[in-house]
């Protein structure tokens, strides 16, 4: 297996590919890096020149978007619906109010002071409108969208599918959102470490999984101090505040990266009751949750998916 590691999307990115042709692998790594960098420029909310920033500025009007943006927004709408609104990309005003108005590198080590946090009326992302023929979207007046997690998952999957053209089996990991294509030669499964949310230097378990997507959502990574209070990036759309969660992290396996990413987030926000509802009908998805005592809790079918 060959590896390439770099920083992008404010995360550690790992490319893994197996092939006997090293020239092909090198070319694959180079093109995948380029693809990820370009996709990041499109979906970031931290520059005024990104397509996402332009879309947010256009709220209230129809806005013509790229095929990539269209695809991610449609996936986001579908998943917002499936999670009963627990996944809501329209939480950007609440995120900014909580102090996450710059990249995490800028705020995580410097306590931020600002206006007192107020209860914001959350807009429901499901009120977004699509015009399929014109490939345009209309955000309702005042809606501001953050596609951070879902875009990262989507980029990981697209990048992995591209890298697969240059390798026999490959994986792309973007900050823990992993998409796996085919199985490495002579290997029965992919081997992935499940990081301990309380001790990032340790793994809680070694997971053996089939090709597909693995994503983890946690409240222990992107956190900062705002007006002397600890905040994290996972906004509960029911309250508009950083979620009070019973678990520290949730890891989901699904066939698509956007699904794994969004279900991990929804289960982390909603806890065990929502997990039971979301996963009762899905035998093709499974989750593992880590609580504050380091216990790992699994969905009914976890053993069919995660061979711990």
């Amino acid at each position: 297996m060959h590896y390439d590691q770099f920083r992008a999307m404010n995360s550690d990115v790992v490319l893994a590919a197996s092939s006997n042709d090293q020239t092909q692998i090198k070319r694959g790594f180079y093109l995948t890096r380029e693809y990820i960098r370009q996709a990041e420029q499109r979906f970031t909310r931290f520059t005024d020149t990104s397509e996402l920033a332009s879309l947010n500025r256009s709220a209230g009007d129809w806005f013509s978007v790229s095929p990539e943006m269209f695809q991610v927004l449609q996936a986001a709408l579908s998943l917002a619906d499936k999670t009963g609104g627990l996944f809501n990309p329209a939480v950007l005003p609440a995120l900014k109010q909580a102090g996450y108005d710059r990249s995490i590198e800028e705020i995580k080590n410097t306590p931020v002071r600002g206006r007192a946090v107020q209860v914001l009326e959350m807009q429901d992302f499901r009120t977004i409108e699509f015009d399929l023929s014109a490939r345009s979207v209309r955000l309702p007046e005042g809606m501001q969208v953050d596609l951070g997690g879902i875009a990262k998952g989507w980029i990981a999957e697209q990048a992995a599918r591209q890298l697969a053209n240059y390798s026999q089996a490959c994986a792309v990991s973007a900050g823990g959102d992993i998409f796996l294509v085919n199985l490495p030669m002579d290997e029965p499964d992919w081997v992935i470490g499940l990081e301990d949310p309380l001790q990032p230097d340790h793994d809680l378990a070694i997971l053996h999984v089939a090709p597909g997507a693995v994503a983890t959502s946690t409240i222990t990574k992107r956190k900062w101090q705002y007006n002397g209070r600890s905040q994290h990036h996972l906004i509960d759309p029911r309250t508009g505040q950083p979620a009070i969660t019973e678990w520290l992290s949730v890891t989901v396996w699904a066939s698509q990266a956007v699904e794994a990413e969004v279900y991990a987030k929804a289960v982390l926000i909603g806890g065990s009751v929502i997990a039971g509802e979301l996963f009762s009908n899905y035998s093709d998805k499974a989750y593992l949750a880590v609580d504050q005592f380091g216990w790992v809790l699994g969905s009914k079918n976890y053993h069919e998916v995660f061979h711990v």
Binding site: A171, W190, V191, I192, G193, E195, A215, T220, K221, A264
Partner: peptide, 9 residues
């Protein structure tokens, strides 16, 4: 530890 790790972000 494996190189591929899921940790969340």
């Amino acid at each position: 530890r494996p190189i591929l790790r899921t940790a969340g972000s």
